[in-house]
Each structure stands twice: as structure tokens, then as C-alpha cells.
Design a protein around this nucleic acid. Structure first.
Lengths: 200, 200
DNA sequence: CTCCTTATTGTACGCTGTACAATTATTGTA
DNA sequence: TACAATAATTGTACAGCGTACAATAAGGAG
């Protein structure tokens, strides 16, 4: 531990390191334990050192959220064009699986409305592309996107263990089947909402 | 202000008063400002006085959440039995409208998974009743209930103003139409998932 | 080399939840 | 009524939090 560092001496931090450390804190201690001070501790740095790299506690949270979304794999454009519904289904399932690994981060996601970082935009534009392919106009595509996002984040949020330990805490597999069901319902409705495809 | 009260002197609090004060705090200062100390201040009471009535900060939050749900009107049993789909639709719309009035409470709702208090159970059992009427078995009814709840809370959560003020913050009316659309999709799918009604 | 910007520390403030013991009011029991 | 048990409330205290401020040193620009 390099505990001895005077004011002005550099620690060689950058934003990526800060975000990475924050993710470690979240993954090992849960996201209620995500504090600037915990991150700083892990980096062997004074608490306020963080402020040079991210302005704010909220911005740190945003960065972590978006970073997590980076784990969601990218479906190929070819797949999206060939079979938009299947592409949407696996995109949402993949997103769900990633999000479920960070259950206690979910309330923050909704608070920040799905995080508006680069990763979120990446996933958003693929979604919009697939919906466009289904024949939805821009407005309808936006709305459908929101429905899918709400559903995915919402279900992921329900995977957190309940506060009262008395209640049967619904198994992860069960919840995932439930999510798949809802997703299927929504995708069917969305696909039907576009104009009927003439391409047979 | 009765600031002068020695240890042991009663303030005459009860749980309802504490919850009511907490609701006032939330409604006037936003739910991030909901602290035991703020509630205590408003009641003219020492911070730790709250602990006699609710054990915990989380439990206070739960109580507030459930209290808010109390505003959702109860559809009559006759209505539910006559037209379950319409009853479900207006129940969810009413819930949405109530929740939207407390946007910054929504992340907590998801965190506590919709709150398991008496009000939540009241709404839950009406929902289950309607779904049962549609011919869903117990398991299917539970799943459909969860889908509807996730959708409602999720959309309500999106009504909070976004953190980055640059983004166009989507009008309330627009979001509500979007919610109605999603609700219609889900209700259609759910109604079809039950066995076809033989009762003409 | 000198100047400027930037990253980092030390310190400090006010806020938070909550544990603990002391104190008094209320309730139950005889 | 007297007394004991329980419950509600305060005072005090602690560790943690986000973050503002000034001092300091390192790195880059000229």
C-alpha cells in the first residue's frame, strides 16, 4: 500500500480506472456500498481525488451503469435485417442476463432512465434499427423501444432478493421464464403493429 | 414549536403520524430528502424517536410506499367479474396515475419490489381475481400479475425528469399514451392466453 | 528554464442512520 | 391504591457519507 503520498504527488489515475474500481466495489459489496470513499479506498487514494475524473457521485454511477451495458453482445447487422424479431428477442434476453448479474444496480438504472451513455445508445440504435425493419415509423419505433426497455429493466429489477425474508423469493429461473413470456407477448404485438410485410 | 421536552416525556406519536409526516417530506422536498431526521424535524421530535414506531429507515420507506398505493381506487367486484379486462386496464391506469405523482419514489418501489404492504396486497388480489376470471390458472395469474406490475411501475419510473437536462424530457401525456399502448398489448396477450371463454 | 494547468492531499463542514443509556409516561397487576 | 413492567422519548455519541476549499507538487507548453 502506497499510503504515503503528499498533496500534489500523482497517483496516475484515469477515468477508466475509477470506473473499473467502482464496478469492483459494486460487484463485491453491493451497490448500496458504492461510495466515493469506498472507490477511493480501493484505489489507495484520497476520497476527493475522484472529483478530478468524474465530477460527481451521480456521474460515477452513470458511468458504472453504462459500463455494465458494455457486456451486452452486439447482434450482427445481417441478423437484425434478416430476422428482426429474433434479433430483438436475443438482444433483450442478453440485456436481461447482464442486468440480472447486478440486481442492486437496477433501481439506479430506472432512476437514471436506463443510462444515456454510449453503450446505452449503442443498444438503443440497434433496437430502433430492428423495429424500423419491422415497418414501424420513427415515432412507433421509439415507443416500442421504450416498452421493451421498461420491461427488461423492470424484470431485472425484480431479481433482487426481497427485503422481507419470509416471502418465497421466486427462483431466478422462474423469473426468467416469466420475463421471456412477457417479451414474447410484446414482440408479437409489436410485430403486428407494423404494416403487414409483403416480403414473403 | 414545543422544542422543550425532556427524556421520557411523551410526544403522543403513532405510526400513522410518522408515515404522514414522511409523505409530506417526500411530496414537498422530494424523496431523496426523505431522512429520519427530516421527518423528526417536521414532527418536532428527536430523530431517534422514530425508531419506536418503525424499526428502520427502510421500513419507513416501505410504509410510505404502501401508503401512496392507498390512493388507488378499488374497482367493484361486480365490475371485475363482468369485464375483467376493462377492470384490469383501469386498475393499472389508476395505479400509473397515482405513481406518476411520486416519480422520485419509483426507484424505491422497484427496490422493494412493489412494496408488500396491505395496500399492495389489496391491489394484487384484485388483479389475481380478474385474471382468474379470464381463465388463467393460479400460476399463470401470478406471472401475468408480475408482468402488469413491472410494466406499470417501470413506466411510472420513466416519468421522473432526466438527469441530463439537454435531452428532450418526453412529455407526460406522450409517456402516458405509450404506457396505454403497452398495457393494451399485454392485456390482449393475457386475455388470449386463457382458455377461450365458452360463456357467450 | 519558467509558467500554467491539472491531479492529488489535508482538512473541514454538515449531513446521514442508528446504537446506547438515562428518563419518564403509560399500562397491567395485586 | 401502590408497585412493577413496558414503552416512548431524549441526549449523546459514533462512524460514515458527499463535497467544498486551499495548499502542494507533478506534467506539459512556451
Amino acid at each position: 500500500m502506497s499510503r504515503s503520498r503528499g498533496p500534489g504527488e500523482r497517483a496516475g489515475l484515469d477515468t477508466a480506472q475509477v470506473v473499473a474500481a467502482a464496478r469492483l466495489v459494486v460487484e463485491e459489496e453491493g451497490s448500496p456500498a458504492l461510495s466515493l470513499r469506498a472507490v477511493a479506498r480501493r484505489l489507495g487514494v484520497a476520497p476527493n481525488a475522484i472529483y478530478s475524473h468524474i465530477g460527481n457521485r451521480d456521474r460515477l454511477l452513470d458511468a458504472v451503469l453504462d459500463d455494465v451495458l458494455g457486456e451486452v453482445p452486439q447482434p450482427s447487422v445481417a441478423t437484425v435485417l434478416r430476422d428482426p424479431v429474433t434479433a430483438l428477442r436475443s438482444l433483450m434476453l442478453d440485456s436481461y442476463d447482464v442486468l440480472v448479474r447486478h440486481p442492486r444496480l437496477m433501481p439506479s438504472y430506472l432512476d437514471r432512465q436506463g443510462a444515456r451513455g454510449v453503450q446505452a445508445q449503442r443498444l438503443g440504435s440497434i433496437t430502433t434499427m430492428a423495429l424500423d425493419r419491422l415497418g414501424l415509423d420513427e415515432r412507433a419505433a421509439h415507443e416500442a423501444t421504450r416498452v421493451l426497455i421498461v420491461n427488461t429493466i423492470g424484470f431485472a429489477a425484480f431479481s433482487a432478493p426481497p427485503s422481507a425474508p419470509g416471502e418465497r423469493p421466486i427462483s431466478a429461473a422462474e423469473l426468467r421464464r416469466n420475463f421471456e413470456q412477457a417479451l414474447a407477448w410484446l414482440l408479437t404485438a409489436i410485430a403486428q403493429s407494423g404494416p403487414p410485410r409483403s416480403t414473403g
